[in-house]
């Protein structure tokens, strides 16, 4: 029974850790499906985390915080969009710039505003997204097997965590079943064909980049207002790149993205759990080995040793209209 409780605890923590990854991964999905490579997920999450924490601190409202996070993230997404779509600049270079700009600005402004070494004051109460307890969760928690599943895995997460699931459903549906989604996918594979059909490549790509901005806004706000209680310098700590890895792992599809993120979140939870624990028969498992797994698996997958991950054909290539 104790093993079962541990299992539930790890799954619960894995779920929490995968929420920002899911949002960021879907952001990358939208952007890259439209042909705009986005390695600036990390930076957009970071500005969103900062803006949401700052706004929530000022207004004591988590919802206003979320709004501010989304606006800040869209702002950075538009810089990337302007560079990548309008200016036809190098998308990798632009992504690196976004990441550095975000890391520098949030730490600088955070320190100047709050003088606490770059962090915002701790948030509490309405300034955070509190866990939602579903009806009857406490009552059936003690029922064996099913109780903890309902109480800890289904109930008990912040509203944003459920939004991540909704975002996955919406992304999968819109990309796969709607005209807009079809066009987004087409513009990432063969923009010239979309252009010939009389649909604006630029408008499609900008909308995808803005959607990516909104999703990164959710990701960052979850970090600052859901998982933690406020902003910390560089609190994304590579999550944007893990999300990128998950996107490759999911071969640029929405539902597999959710599973890949859950897998990586779970690995993170296991690594935290195993810190310093001696496993009988094996000895101490190096935590770093588990932390390295997402990156290692991505490298192996990309190299085609297990299946093959093929990015959208036109991703990373600026579209130039023939004259």
């Amino acid at each position: 029974m104790e093993i079962y409780a541990t299992l539930i605890a790890i799954l619960e923590s894995g779920l929490r850790l995968c929420v920002p990854l899911v949002f960021a991964c879907l952001a990358g999905l939208w952007s890259e499906r439209s042909g705009v490579v986005d390695i600036g997920l990390e930076g957009k999450m970071l500005v969103a985390a900062f803006a949401s924490a700052a706004a929530a601190e000022a207004t004591n409202s988590a919802l206003i915080g979320l709004g501010a996070g989304i606006i800040a993230s869209i702002g950075f997404a538009l810089i990337h969009g302007f560079a990548a779509i309008s200016q036809r600049g190098n998308q990798i270079v632009s992504g690196v710039a976004i990441n550095m700009l975000a890391a520098g600005l949030t730490a600088l402004v955070g320190n100047a505003w709050y003088a606490q070494g770059g962090r915002t004051p701790p948030l509490e109460g309405d300034a955070r997204f509190q866990p939602l307890t579903w009806p009857g969760a406490e009552a059936i928690d003690h029922i064996p097997i099913i109780g903890p599943i309902y109480a800890h895995l289904i109930s008990g997460h912040s509203a944003l965590a459920y939004c991540a699931l909704v975002a996955t459903i919406l992304s999968a549906f819109v990309l796969r079943r709607t005209r807009f989604g079809l066009r987004i996918r087409a513009v990432g594979e063969n923009p010239a064909a979309v252009d010939t059909a009389g649909v604006s490549v630029i408008r499609l790509r900008y909308s995808a980049v803005i959607i990516a901005g909104i999703l990164c806004g959710f990701a960052g706000s979850y970090l600052a207002l859901g998982q933690a209680a406020g902003f910390l310098t560089n609190m994304t700590a590579g999550k944007g790149f893990i999300a990128l890895a998950a996107l490759i792992f999911a071969k640029w599809r929405a539902w597999p993205a959710l599973w890949a993120c859950f897998l990586f979140g779970l690995l993170d939870a296991v690594a935290i759990r195993l810190q310093g624990v001696i496993v009988p028969g094996i000895g101490q498992i190096p935590v770093q080995a588990i932390q390295a797994l997402p990156y290692l698996m991505t490298v192996i997958l990309l190299a085609g040793f297990i299946g093959k991950a093929i990015p959208p054909k036109a991703s990373g290539i600026p579209y130039v209209k023939e004259r």
Partner: peptide, 21 residues
Amino acid sequence: RVTRDMIVAISGLVILFAGAL
């Protein structure tokens, strides 16, 4: 109030204006 993070931000701006833009 002007910490060394300023340099990271400036680098980002340089990458943006000398590179992507």
